[in-house]
């Protein structure tokens, strides 16, 4: 490196350059394209045919009952997923935080679903929840819990339940990871002091643990809400939005509009709505996480 020495400024620019180029070309540009496309009519079968239609695509989706149906179903799907993930996640993290021999094995196995490919688990779900030849129905019937096979994926409510279950299965580990990381930073002296004061396990949980977890939980919940709301693969691979359109969310709606209905403009307009929603979510996140204040402090 001698004889050829970059100034600090040059190094700084040099280091930033790849990021700026990549981000510009593959993030800013596509998002700008997506926004632009929302104002055009574009049928992928006629790629040379691009017509400006103004706000027509937006009018179209806002007048489409299926859009609103997808929207409210997305709320149901997100709400249940988040509540269950949070409760289970905190509960399991508490169990896994106990220092016992062999706990690492449990920890590994319980975090595992997070890295299982969605395709794998969706196919598995279709196999084990198959109403006719699935092992779940077989187990429930032979244990005498149910009398007749449950049509897990073919009634609107059960399909939504199955989809939520899948999401909970796959993403509860994320909550566990985050909560565990926080739990490990809580000084044990706090608990010891509380014990001395005669606080029971539940009191220790509500008085010490929960307040300590509050911050991380709020962040995790905001995050998971934004992601779950926009999830595509879990639903598409499990139910394709069915039966009927009972498990559509906005992402599946956008995909179907773009690919099956050949209206990429409408799909893009749906995408713009999703962006607006998630920007709102991000503002919430920034507020609750103290992300901005930290910045000012430096």
């Amino acid at each position: 490196m001698r004889g050829f020495r970059l100034s600090d400024r040059q190094v700084g620019i040099l280091f930033m350059l790849p990021f700026l180029v990549t981000a510009g070309a593959f993030m800013v540009w596509p998002v700008a394209e997506a926004v632009r496309l929302a104002f055009y009519s574009y049928n992928p079968l006629r790629p040379d045919d691009l017509t400006w239609v103004g706000f027509e695509n937006f009018e179209r989706i806002f007048n489409d009952p299926l859009f609103w149906e997808s929207f409210s179903q997305a709320l149901v799907w997100t709400g249940w997923s988040i509540v269950l993930q949070t409760l289970l996640g905190v509960g399991l993290a508490m169990l896994l935080h106990v220092a016992l021999p062999g706990i690492a094995v449990f920890r590994g196995l319980l975090l595992f679903p997070y890295i299982v490919p969605t395709v794998v688990i969706a196919l598995n779900w279709r196999w084990i929840f198959n109403s006719e030849i699935g092992i779940v129905n077989h187990a429930l019937v032979s244990l005498g819990i149910i009398e007749q096979n449950i049509a897990w994926l073919s009634t609107p409510n059960m399909a939504m339940t199955s989809a939520v279950l899948l999401n909970v299965w796959k993403y509860t580990p994320f909550v566990i990871i985050c909560v565990l990381a926080r739990l490990q930073t809580i000084p044990t002296e706090l608990y010891d002091a509380a014990k001395v004061d005669g606080a029971g396990a539940w009191r220790r949980f509500t008085d010490i643990t929960l307040p300590m977890l509050k911050e991380v939980l709020v962040v995790v919940i905001v995050f998971r809400t934004i992601w779950t709301f926009n999830k595509f693969e879990e639903i598409y691979l499990l139910t394709r939005g069915g039966p009927g359109t009972s498990t559509f969310n906005l992402a599946v709606y956008a995909f179907e509009e773009g690919m099956a209905n050949l209206r990429l403009g409408v799909a893009a307009a749906t995408g713009v709505v999703m962006i607006v929603l998630l920007l709102a979510g991000t503002v919430v996140y920034v507020r609750v996480s103290g992300f901005g204040q930290e910045e000012k402090a430096t």
Partner: peptide, 19 residues
């Protein structure tokens, strides 16, 4: 970057595909 992190792939996929 934070905002970009939240943008779901369904939004990227069509314009990326056209590009």
């Amino acid at each position: 970057a934070l905002v970009g992190y939240m943008v779901p792939s369904i939004i990227f996929v069509f314009p990326m595909f056209l590009v």
